[in-house]
Simulated scan of single mutants.
Amino acid sequence: MQICLTMTVLFRKSLRQTSGIVENLLQPTGLDWKETGTSTLCRDQKALNVASPDPSGC
């Protein structure tokens, strides 16, 4: 879940897009990752501390 939220901030994509990307990245590894619902990610996003990338690019 932390990875999805971090990627959402980093790549400025929606949570739905990001969770699909993570699921596709994990498929070849054989890990069975159940996609977390978007509403769950939205709700948990408030509780997790995800740092925004530095806007200056440094």
Rank of each mutant, 00 (worst) to 15 (best):
K46Q: 06
T29M: 03
G20P: 10
I3K: 15
D54A: 00
A47K: 06
R43G: 08
K34D: 14
L5A: 01
P28S: 11
D44C: 15
K13M: 06
L26H: 01
S39V: 12
Q45R: 11
Q2L: 12
G37V: 11
P55S: 01
R43S: 07
C4M: 03
A51M: 09
S52T: 09
D44E: 15
P53M: 00
L10A: 12
W33K: 08
K13G: 03
V9S: 05
D54M: 00
L5P: 01
I3S: 13
K46Y: 03
L15T: 05
T29I: 09
G30H: 01
Q17G: 15
I21Y: 05
L31S: 07
I3Y: 14
P53Y: 00
L15F: 08
L15R: 10
S56N: 02
Q27M: 11
G37M: 07
Q27K: 12
T8V: 05
A51Y: 05
G30R: 04
K34H: 10
K13P: 03
W33C: 10
C42V: 07
R12S: 13
F11L: 10
W33R: 11
G57N: 04
D54G: 00
M1I: 07
T8P: 02
S14R: 06
L31A: 08
G20K: 14
K13E: 05
V9P: 04
C42F: 02
G20S: 15
L26T: 09
S56F: 01
A47N: 05
L15K: 10
D44A: 14
L48G: 05
T18A: 14
V9A: 13
V50Q: 04
P53N: 00
Q27Y: 13
L48I: 11
W33G: 04
V22Y: 04
T18C: 09
R16E: 14
G57F: 05
S14Y: 05
D54H: 00
T36Q: 02
S19Y: 00
T8W: 03
C42L: 06
I21R: 12
F11M: 12
S14V: 07
T40Q: 10
R12G: 14
T38I: 09
E35H: 09
C42M: 07
F11N: 08
D32K: 07
A47W: 03
D44H: 13
D44P: 10
L31P: 02
D32S: 05
T29Y: 02
R43F: 09
M7Y: 03
M1C: 12
R43N: 11
R16P: 06
Q45L: 07
R12E: 14
G57S: 01
M7N: 00
K46E: 01
V9K: 02
V22C: 11
I3D: 14
V50R: 07
